[in-house]
Amino acid sequence: MSATILIVDDSATMRALVRGALEADRHAVVEAPNGEAALATLASMPTGVDLVITDVIMPQMDGLSLTRALRDDPRFAATPILVLTTEATPAQKERGRAAGATGWLVKPFHPDTLRRTVRQTLAERG
């Protein structure tokens, strides 16, 4: 199942790594360098996206603020959001869960693990 996925990360290199992993599974990828840019990108896409993958620590708007903003918007309340971050403590993951994230992946990521998690998340969404 191919999907449209938004990658939000301030590092162009990291976005390219994630894009490479997802395009190998024939997903269509759009990118944004921070939370504010992600909201602007989503606002310009009438059909939205199937999945958001976001970093946490970013300039302008961070990934957890983005997650909360999306959950407060009826259009994106049900869109799966995977957090992909260097942050790895249980307390940080709990903040992600409370913000409304669907899952939490700790960097560095293995491309196969990312693809498998994306497939599982899209399948559970139906």
């Binding site: 959950r71 790895a88 409304g100 994230a101 669907t102 939490w104 700790v106």
Partner: peptide, 10 residues
């Protein structure tokens, strides 16, 4: 890094 999928969360 590892993967955590949240169940029954918001």
């Amino acid at each position: 890094g590892d993967v955590t999928l949240f169940r029954g969360g918001r």
